[in-house]
Design a protein around this nucleic acid. Structure first.
Lengths: 157, 157
DNA sequence: AATGAAAGCTCTTAGAC
DNA sequence: GTCTAAGAGCTTTCATT
């Protein structure tokens, strides 16, 4: 069963129960429907139907597992700002997309065109991986020392 | 049922089946055990036991839902680099932590101490929210135009 | 829209290899 | 470490309000 049934998303009308559902799923994305039902105060069938609605509306894009990068041997994380050389913008984007150690990349306004997150096994890997980027862009790398705020939900209003 | 049973994580020994399990869960974090079992080629009980092992080892930190920020009315995302004024480092971290629109924040090496992701309802909200930070830090804001790489798994090796 | 009851399926436990 | 079998529990469907 392939989960997300995405649809173009405009600001959805969420009531209090929808928000409670989303908050509960943010805490435990694998909670059973019956447990979610308990938490939001509805019956299981109603909860199931709301879930499906949120999925088909595109409010819920999918569900995923949070994996500790250290368990996979990634002892380092870096955040790399990337400023493509003239005419290299699209190629740089493609290069980043193709390097799987880049686990996230945003295109942003301003001097640095891309801000990307890189997982590394060791500091020695940094040059090796960035070599493919520095042919076509200036980069500026910051090593992550800690993560004061791990991905969390914004206010649901 | 509270899911994650975290444990200090050292590089775990994952075999091919573990990696297949993690990959399947990354695609659909709500896939049933029996479906996961089909995908990795084991029986449901074995799959269930491996899942539990990955959870208690801390390889799996939890499960979560991916919510489209636009559905919540967040039409804008910004990435803010934050350089605290002398003596304000800890307070700045605390301020960021307390503003729920900051959905992610890393402390990094280099001139800019923090790199944070901000969800916004409108561009007008930017100054309003950053006001609490700029009392104690220099900030540099980039608006997200697109996301060439959305959070994905790195190579599982 | 939500509920309750029943059918069908899934998960887990137990015991064996 | 994995399997099969069976009971417990869950999810869904459908008729009802």
């Amino acid at each position: 069963m392939k989960r997300p049934a995405s649809t173009p998303v405009q600001p959805a009308n969420l009531d209090e129960i929808d928000r409670a559902l989303l908050a509960a799923l943010a805490e435990d994305g694998r909670a059973s429907v019956s447990e979610l039902a308990r938490q939001v105060g509805l019956s299981a069938p109603s909860t199931s139907e709301r879930l499906r609605r949120l999925e088909t509306q595109g409010v819920i894009g999918g569900y995923t597992v949070q994996i500790d990068p250290r368990a996979l041997g990634y002892t380092l994380q870096a955040i790399v700002r990337v400023k493509p050389l003239p005419g290299q913008l699209h190629l740089v984007e493609e290069v980043i997309r193709r390097i799987p150690e880049f686990v996230e990349c945003d295109k942003v306004t301003g001097d640095d065109c891309f801000i990307a997150r890189l997982y590394l096994h060791s500091i020695g890997q940094l040059d090796e991986i960035l070599a493919k980027v520095t042919e076509r862009a200036e980069t500026s790398t910051a090593i992550v020392k800690s993560t004061p705020v791990a991905r969390r939900l914004p206010p649901l209003e």
